[in-house]
Each structure stands twice: as C-alpha cells, then as structure tokens.
C-alpha cells in the first residue's frame, strides 16, 4: 500500500489545486448561528481565495468555533450557506481538514496506527515524512495517549500532511504548541498557501504568517 517516498511532504501538494490550476475558493453568505434561543452571530459573509489566509478573531464566546464548524459542514447554519468553488458532485467535505478542540486521536492506538488509519480512510501519502516534518518521528510507536498535549497537536498536524487537502480550518491551532512548533506551523501554512490552498484560522495569538484577511467576531 505504501509507496516509498523519501521526499518530505510539502504542505502545498493538492492534486488539482496547485498553482496555475483552478484555484479553490471558499465563500459564505449571510451565515447565522443559533444555540438554544441565543443568536451567536448573524449575517456573516466572507470570501477566501486559494493562497489566502483568513484569521478569525474576537473575544471568547463570540462564535469563532461555531463559525468554523459551520464552514466545515459539521454543524448546520441557522441561515445562509457555504460554497466551495470549483463545486464537486460529492460535496466539499473531502476537501477540508479541520482541527478542533479535540485532536481526534484514538487513545489506545499508537501514533503510527492512528495516522495509518486516516491515510487509508482518506487516501494519502506516506506517514514517516509527515511525522518527521512535525518533529515526532521518534514517538511513532508509542500509544498516543502517553504523548503530551503539544505532541498530540503535532500528530494532528501530521494527519493533514498525510492526506493533503486544499482547505484548512484550524481552531486555535497554537494551543499547547511550543515556540518551535509554532514556527513549524507557520512554515506549513506558508507552503499550503503557496501551493494554492486556503486556510481559516481562529486564534487569539498572532500567527507567524501574514493574514490576507481578518474576520473579527464581535458577537450579535
């Protein structure tokens, strides 16, 4: 199954979305979110093109995470819609990488087993270079449960490199990351953008990459 490939994966490899090809484009129009009876945000519109980074900022509780989950299609919007161009028949779920508050790792499996499952489930490239890239290659045979929060977060980043996708939705990706990992994430983002991908990042801290756009959430 694994094709031998010693080349470190660049975050910008997405078949069909590279430079000079059709650039991916993500738009949302008139989005609104309601939790219980409370409107979290309403009439929110944005457009991000391939190669652009949009940061989502704002105080706690203004709906940054909810916004990203709606964009990912993991939560229905109370109003408005999200569109991805070029449109795909099967919907855009398979174009999106999402990193939320939970890393999505299976605690009883090793780092390698976790990544290997996602490689087979999503279809993707070799695991070893991705682990090398995020700096946890030496930990690949440890149960993922014994890793620190920052190392688990690095493993989640490696998952994005194993199966390249053009849209990254990152919810507070800097949480638990040390300075070196923060710089590494900056590099990954730059490569991803240079390869024609786009990213939406909800964050309270400054990212190491310049954002083309900023969406400021102020609450309803």
């Amino acid at each position: 199954m694994t094709t031998p490939d010693d080349r470190a994966p660049a975050a910008g490899d997405h078949a069909g979305y590279g430079p000079g090809r059709d650039h991916v484009r993500l738009t949302g129009t008139g989005l609104a979110a309601v939790r219980g009876l409370r409107t979290i945000f309403s009439d929110l519109s944005f457009a991000v093109a391939g190669g652009e980074l949009m940061t989502v900022t704002g105080p706690n509780g203004t709906g940054k995470s909810t916004f990203l989950r709606i964009v990912a299609g993991l939560m229905p919007a109370a109003a408005g819609e999200v569109a991805v161009a070029p449109a795909r028949e099967d919907g855009h779920a398979a174009l999106i990488h999402y990193i939320g508050h939970h890393d999505g790792h299976k605690a009883s499996l090793t780092v390698r087993q976790n990544l290997d499952f996602w490689r087979r489930f999503w279809g993707g490239g070799p695991i070893a270079p991705a682990l090398e890239r995020v700096g946890i290659a030496a930990l690949d045979n440890l149960p993922i449960d014994v890793l620190s929060a920052g190392q688990k977060r690095r493993a989640a980043l490696a998952r994005m490199l194993v199966a390249p996708r053009p849209i990254w939705l990152l919810d507070e990706p800097l949480t638990a990351l040390d300075a070196a990992a923060e710089a590494m994430l900056g590099d990954l983002l730059s490569e991803h953008l240079a390869g024609g991908g786009l990213a939406l990042v909800a964050t309270h801290r400054a990212l190491p990459v310049a954002a083309a756009r900023t969406l400021r959430m102020e609450g309803p």
Partner: peptide, 17 residues
C-alpha cells in the same frame, strides 16, 4: 460515544464516505 468525545466523529464526516 468515544468517536464523539475524542473528535474522531468530525474527521470521519470530512470524507466522501
């Protein structure tokens, strides 16, 4: 239950399956 609490359910939904 596990898939939901560890976030894997979100990832399972981000696919063509």
């Amino acid at each position: 239950g596990d898939d939901r609490s560890d976030g894997a359910l979100d990832l399972l939904r981000l696919s063509d399956l």
